[in-house]
Amino acid sequence: MEIVKIVAFAFIALIITVVFRNQKSEIAVLISVIVGVLIFIFMLSKITAVLGLLQKLALKANIDFVYLTTVFKILGIAYLASFCSEICKDSGESNIASKVEFAGKILILVLAVPILMGLLDSILKLM
C-alpha cells in the first residue's frame, strides 16, 4: 500500500526535522520542503492517471476542453497555494501564509468567472 510508504517517509522526515529544528531551523524548513516535493513527485503518476481519465470522460460527455483545462488550473492553484501556505506556517511566517492563501483564492475566482459566465449563458438559453 502506497499510503503506508508515504506515511512512513513522512514520519521519518518529521523526526529528522524536529531534531534539526532545535539546532538549525533553516535546515528543518529545507527538509520539510524537500519532503513535500518528493511526496508530490511520488504522486505525480497518480495525478496524471486521474487527469487522463477525466479527459476521456469529458470527451465522451462532449464537454468543451476549455472548461476542463480551467478546472485543472484551479485545482493546481489550490494545491500549490496550500502547499506554499503550509511551508510558510512551518517556518513561522503565518502572515505570509495568509497572503498566499488570499492570492490563491483571488486567482481561482478569476479563473472561475468564464465558467460561471458559460453556465449562466446556458441557463439563459434554456429559458
Rank of each mutant, 00 (worst) to 15 (best):
L109V: 10
L14G: 13
A112S: 15
A28F: 00
K73N: 08
K73Q: 11
L75R: 01
G52N: 10
E101D: 13
V7D: 02
L75A: 12
V29E: 02
V33E: 00
C88A: 15
G118P: 01
S85M: 08
I77R: 04
E26F: 03
M117V: 14
I41E: 02
Q55Y: 12
T70R: 07
L111D: 08
V37P: 01
K99S: 10
L75P: 00
L59H: 12
L124A: 10
A112N: 09
F102R: 10
L116P: 06
L53A: 11
D121M: 13
S85A: 15
Q23N: 10
L38R: 05
A28Y: 00
A10H: 07
T70V: 10
V71F: 04
L44F: 10
A13N: 13
A78V: 11
V19E: 10
I123N: 01
L120D: 03
L38P: 03
V110R: 09
V18Y: 09
R21C: 06
Q23F: 10
A61M: 14
A58D: 05
S82F: 15
F72N: 03
L53C: 06
L68R: 01
I41V: 15
L124N: 06
K73D: 06
G52F: 00
F65D: 12
S82M: 11
L119T: 08
L75V: 07
L44D: 05
F65T: 14
K89V: 08
V4F: 11
A58V: 06
G36S: 01
T48D: 14
I47D: 02
A81E: 06
A10I: 15
L51P: 04
K46G: 13
F42C: 03
L111I: 05
